[in-house]
C-alpha cells in the first residue's frame, strides 16, 4: 500500500512534467500547425541551463529563474530563425527540418557542456523527506515538483481562460484564419505561443534536472511521451493535454512498477522478466493506438485544422 501510494505520486509527478511539456507542444501544434521535434531539445536545454546557472549563482532558485529566461530567449530566436519558415509546410517537411534542429542542439550541447552526464543536487531546503501519512515518507523535492507543476498548470489555465491574450489564443486555436481576419496579429501571436511553449518545456527540464542525469538525448525520450500525450488529449486542447498527461504519467509509472510482477503469475519467471519491461514500455504506445483508432481526434477534439491537413 505504501509502495503503491509512492508509485502513484511518482506517476502524478511524471504526469505534471509531461503536462508542462505537452501544453506547449499542443499549442504549437494546434495554433501554428507545426510538428516540432525540437521541443524536446528545449527541455534538454532547460536542464543544462539549470545545472550551469545554479553552479554559477550558488542558488537553485536564481539558477532556475535564469535558466527559464535563457530557454525562452532560445525559443524566441528559434522561432525567428527557423520555425517561421516552416509554417504552412507539409508535416513531413516540418519533421525533417526540426529533426535537423535536434541534431544541432544535441551536438551543440555536447560541445558546450561536454559529453559526460551532469547532475544537479536539489536545494538543501528541499533535500529531505516529508511524512505524508504515518509510515509514508516521500522526498520533499519530488513533492515540490508536483506543487510547482500544478501551480504552472493553474497559471496556464488562468492565462488561457481568464486573460485577453488567452482569449486571442483560443480564438486562433479554434479558427486561425478568422482570428487573423478580425485583426489578431498572428505573427506576434505565433511568436508568443512558441516562446510560451519553450518556457514551459524549459521549466519541465529545470524541474526534472535534480531527478535524473542531465545528458544529450534526454529530450528525445520525453519528446515521444509528450507526442503521445498531445495525440491522446486531442491536438490543440490544453485540457486534453492535462488529462492525457496525468493518465500517461500514472499508466507508465504503474505499468513499469506492477506489470512485470503481474506477468509472473501468468508466465515462468525468466519469460516474465524479459517481457515485462518491454511490455510496460509498449503500454503507452498501445494506449495511443487504441485511442486513435476509437477516437481519431483524441479525447478532447478541437477544431484545429491540423487534424485534417496532411
Amino acid at each position: 500500500m505504501t509502495l503503491f501510494l509512492e508509485q502513484a505520486l511518482n506517476g502524478l509527478q511524471l504526469g505534471v512534467l509531461l503536462f508542462l511539456l505537452s501544453a506547449g507542444l499542443t499549442l504549437v501544434f494546434g495554433i501554428m500547425g507545426i510538428v516540432n521535434l525540437a521541443h524536446g531539445s528545449l527541455y534538454m536545454l532547460g536542464a543544462y541551463f539549470a545545472v550551469t546557472f545554479t553552479g554559477w549563482t550558488g542558488s537553485f532558485l536564481l539558477g532556475a529563474l535564469a535558466a527559464l529566461l535563457a530557454t525562452v530567449i532560445v525559443g524566441i530566436v528559434l522561432e525567428r530563425v527557423a520555425i517561421r519558415g516552416l509554417y504552412d509546410r507539409p508535416h513531413l517537411e516540418q519533421v525533417l527540418g526540426t529533426f535537423g534542429l535536434i541534431l544541432f542542439f544535441n551536438e551543440g550541447a555536447r560541445l558546450v557542456f561536454g559529453p559526460a552526464g551532469l547532475s544537479l543536487a536539489p536545494p538543501a531546503w528541499l533535500s529531505g523527506q516529508v511524512t505524508l501519512l504515518p509510515g509514508v515518507v516521500y522526498p520533499s523535492y519530488r513533492l515540490a515538483v508536483l506543487v510547482a507543476g500544478i501551480a504552472a498548470a493553474g497559471g496556464m489555465y488562468w492565462l488561457v481562460a481568464r486573460t485577453r491574450a488567452g482569449m486571442l489564443l483560443r480564438a486562433a486555436a479554434a479558427n486561425r484564419n478568422m482570428a487573423e481576419a478580425l485583426g489578431v496579429n498572428s505573427r506576434l501571436l505565433f511568436l508568443a505561443v512558441f516562446a510560451l511553449g519553450a518556457g514551459l518545456s524549459g521549466l519541465a527540464g529545470i524541474l526534472a534536472a535534480p531527478l535524473l542525469t542531465v545528458r544529450v538525448g534526454m529530450g528525445e525520450e520525453v519528446l515521444l511521451l509528450a507526442f503521445v500525450v498531445v495525440v491522446i488529449g486531442g491536438i490543440g486542447s490544453i485540457r486534453g493535454a492535462l488529462v492525457a498527461a496525468l493518465l500517461i504519467g500514472v499508466l507508465d509509472t504503474l505499468g513499469r512498477a506492477y506489470l512485470p510482477g503481474a506477468l509472473r503469475f501468468a508466465f515462468a519467471g525468466p519469460v516474465a522478466d524479459a517481457v515485462g519491461p518491454a511490455l510496460s514500455s509498449m503500454l503507452i504506445y498501445f494506449a495511443m493506438a487504441v485511442v486513435l483508432v476509437v477516437r481519431p481526434r483524441g479525447l478532447f477534439p478541437t477544431s484545429a485544422r491540423t487534424d485534417v491537413a496532411a
Partner: peptide, 12 residues
Amino acid sequence: TRGVAFLMITLA
C-alpha cells in the same frame, strides 16, 4: 486516421 494523427500512430 489522417494527418498528424496518422504520423503519430505509425510512430506508435
